[in-house]
Design a protein around this nucleic acid. Structure first.
Lengths: 196, 196
DNA sequence: TGCAAATAATACCTATTAGTATGTTTTTAT
DNA sequence: ATAAAAACATACTAATAGGTATTATTTGCA
């Protein structure tokens, strides 16, 4: 990796961490410069403006995270019910990047920016759709294999599950306690079992 | 109502509308003054600072809305399944204040402020808990009447449902389309029916 | 090795931010 | 009617915001 690429990546990663903690609007360029030890000249060499950096974070950091942590675990040939439950368990309980007090970064971004920045909205919608579509595909496969009831609407279920995930992330933020995840997971398991 | 009370309420209501649209942090005092036609002197006569106004909005506007629109509809003696479904249908489809592109005001506030302002967190947690507790109580009553299965964990279900609500609000914001609500409601109905 | 392009550093600019200081007007109680 | 208190108005401040202009330093390559 060239050195310039390094500073760029450094900016993206540190900025992402700050934004995940504090939110996009309240993370200032100066905040980012302070924690990266990068100067303003360097920052604006790499990014036209703050929003371009935001989009880069979504496309270059969030998207890969989504692919590896949210989508890849769905792609196995086991029972969809276990697959989905295990994914949620991993995301809520085991994953070390996602912090209970800061919620889900994609949901945070969405909440903050969706109705105000077309580019953000588009990028976020794309990665979210990818997740939901993959989950739906898993369910369809399960239907074909007879693991999932025939009368189940896969897309509908996928969205229902994804919604629950975003919601419980917000709940846990409010209580600042992972315990709510356990309660959520129990009911999710019960719900998923009604699909077979 | 005394005139002074009127200006205070005017500030709270207009500020709330702005915050619901734009978020708390990005709604400036000057924004509020511009839309209320109130001067800075008047604003700071009524509120010590911006955060005090924010707390007042939660306690004096959000709380009553929650009581009347989220909690009161739960308090009838019908079947909990219909009661909860009808509430969600009302909130997502019929309610005229809640806008698809701006999500749920309580969820927005939570996402933005929960981990940063203790007072906000406390006020928001209180009203949210009240909603979940009421929903759980409705389910408990349903269990006693034999309308809900015995092995159901009421609190757990209430939280699961509330999470789904917050989540789908965020989803709809992303797609800026009420259609996702219809899909959500269908699956919610299916889910609720598994409780009996 | 030298020079152009890439990368970075510094100083600055204007707008906006929350908040204050100090006044004036309006209400209220006597 | 009048004085005191409540309610509001105006002009300001210091800090911070995102962004730019200009200059300096590295880097890759002929």
């Amino acid at each position: 990796m060239k050195k310039a690429e390094g500073t760029r990546l450094n900016i993206l990663q540190k900025a992402f961490a700050l934004i995940y903690e504090k939110g996009y609007q309240t993370t200032s360029i100066d905040d980012i410069l302070a924690t990266t030890q990068v100067t303003k000249g360097a920052f604006y060499y790499h990014f036209k403006n703050k929003d371009e950096m935001g989009i880069a974070i979504i496309n270059e950091l969030l998207r890969p995270i989504l692919t590896s942590s949210f989508i890849a675990p769905l792609q196995n040939d086991k029972n969809p019910i276990d697959t989905i439950y295990n994914l949620m368990h991993y995301l809520l309980i085991e994953d070390e990047f996602l912090q209970v007090q800061h919620g889900c970064p994609v949901a945070n971004f969405t909440q903050e920016m969706a109705s105000w920045n077309k580019d953000f909205n588009h990028a976020l919608n794309e990665i979210t759709q990818q997740w939901v579509k993959t989950m739906a595909a898993v369910l369809v496969k399960g239907k074909e294999k007879g693991q999932i009831r025939d009368d189940i609407n896969a897309k509908q279920v996928a969205m229902f599950v994804a919604s629950g995930y975003w919601g419980i992330r917000n709940f846990a933020k409010l209580e600042n306690d992972k315990k709510v995840y356990l309660s959520y997971l129990k009911e999710l398991k019960r719900y998923l079992n009604t699909l077979k």
